[in-house]
Computed example of a mutant assay.
Amino acid sequence: MKRILITGAAGFLGSHLCDRFIAEGYYVIGMDNLITGDLKNIEHLFKDKNFEFYHHDVTKFVHVPGKLDYILHFASPASPIDYLKIPIQTLKVGAMGTHNLLGLARVKKARILIASTSEVYGDPLIHPQTEEYYGNVNTIGPRGVYDEAKRYQEAITMAYHTFHGLETRILRIFNTYGPRMRLNDGRVIPAFIGQALRGEDLTVFGDGSQTRSFCYVDDQVEGIWRLLHSDYHFPVNIGNPDEITIKDFAEEIIKLTGTDQKIIYKPLPKDDPMQRQPNIDKAKEILGWEPKVGRAEGMRLTYEYFKSLSPEELAKEEHKDFTKFIN
């Protein structure tokens, strides 16, 4: 039986990856410090004999007994609300956490896939974004802590590949959505749906002309699966190239939820990307992958998930205690 370590296992994407690898017959070791993850995302796996969970911070020394065939490094705050509150921890998990896991992969002779992001492109000057584009990033701006953590993560991963001959894979994730997203994490889809279900007006930053491309979680997981098992060690974009403006997307949400909220506009945050659309030619050619779930179907499934939440969950604002992580 193949054994895999998945960091960030209690998060949105990490928990779906745990499900996929369990379903494929792997022994899954989930690891999370629960700074932004939630055990409810993986509690259904606790009774599975092929799953175990380590409550651990990967910026500390990482030890896992026994053999490891693969490591998926998905531990990191991923929403602006989180990484603006815990900027140092965000940098540490991208730098020290990645270093620790690369060292573990080397000792175990395991293949490691690291989760990078489209944010390495910053506010892009080319459109759509190809893997060869170096990006337009403000290193000292408010988003720099996340962008640069991921850029460093890619650099040290490639260094381990070239210097130590480690088997590495680099995934660049574009906006992904689906069940288990945190309702109030600041990302556009849960923010819009939460506002609609609470009867609030939808908040659009800027004039709404900025674009995003949304990939349903099942498609993203399939792309990750194929990249991990491929022979390609350079970065690969995994995302849905179906681009839409934020204003048009807000109108789609109002139609989907059957509400009559208005759209209100607020100033655009500093360094917020104006365009985000992946070029997925490499994923098509190398992995034989492209998204299958259209936005209408994916949003219907996501809306059903959020609609199933209790009124208390919909009404509450999340105020996580980050104090112990600020150092």
Rank of each mutant, 00 (worst) to 15 (best):
residue 298 G to K: 01
residue 71 I to G: 03
residue 312 E to F: 04
residue 258 G to E: 14
residue 193 I to M: 11
residue 192 F to P: 02
residue 304 E to Y: 02
residue 139 T to R: 04
residue 30 G to E: 10
residue 242 D to P: 05
residue 293 V to A: 06
residue 11 G to S: 09
residue 153 Q to V: 04
residue 42 I to R: 00
residue 153 Q to E: 15
residue 110 A to E: 12
residue 227 L to E: 08
residue 285 E to N: 09
residue 180 R to D: 12
residue 6 I to H: 02
residue 98 T to Q: 08
residue 295 R to C: 09
residue 226 R to N: 10
residue 41 N to W: 04
residue 280 I to M: 11
residue 80 P to V: 06
residue 326 I to W: 04
residue 169 R to M: 13
residue 221 V to C: 10
residue 238 I to F: 11
residue 227 L to W: 02
residue 237 N to I: 11
residue 163 F to Q: 12
residue 188 V to H: 02
residue 320 K to R: 10
residue 217 V to G: 05
residue 301 L to R: 14
residue 220 Q to Y: 09
residue 246 I to L: 15
residue 253 I to A: 08
residue 10 A to N: 05
residue 114 I to M: 08
residue 81 I to L: 13
residue 39 L to F: 06
residue 173 I to A: 07
residue 83 Y to L: 10
residue 274 M to E: 14
residue 80 P to D: 12
residue 94 G to M: 10
residue 148 E to T: 11
residue 189 I to D: 08
residue 166 L to R: 04
residue 217 V to W: 09
residue 47 K to D: 15
residue 324 K to Y: 08
residue 235 P to N: 08
residue 272 D to L: 11
residue 311 P to H: 02
residue 92 K to Q: 13
residue 321 D to M: 05
residue 63 H to P: 05
residue 18 C to H: 00
residue 158 M to T: 09
residue 23 A to L: 09
residue 291 P to H: 05
residue 190 P to W: 01
residue 186 G to R: 02
residue 111 R to F: 05
residue 169 R to W: 12
residue 215 C to M: 12
residue 29 I to H: 03
residue 2 K to S: 12
residue 119 E to D: 15
residue 223 G to L: 04
residue 145 V to T: 12
residue 166 L to E: 13
residue 43 E to P: 00
residue 116 S to H: 03
residue 202 L to V: 00
residue 197 L to P: 07
residue 202 L to H: 00
residue 243 E to N: 10
residue 100 N to F: 05
residue 208 G to Q: 08
residue 147 D to P: 01
residue 156 I to T: 07
residue 200 E to I: 00
residue 63 H to C: 13
residue 19 D to H: 02
residue 77 P to Q: 09
residue 135 G to N: 09
residue 35 I to L: 13
residue 74 F to P: 00
residue 197 L to I: 03
residue 282 K to D: 14
residue 213 S to C: 13
residue 166 L to F: 05
residue 189 I to Q: 03
residue 235 P to F: 05
residue 112 I to Q: 00
residue 94 G to I: 04
residue 189 I to T: 08
residue 154 E to W: 03
residue 269 P to D: 15
residue 141 G to L: 12
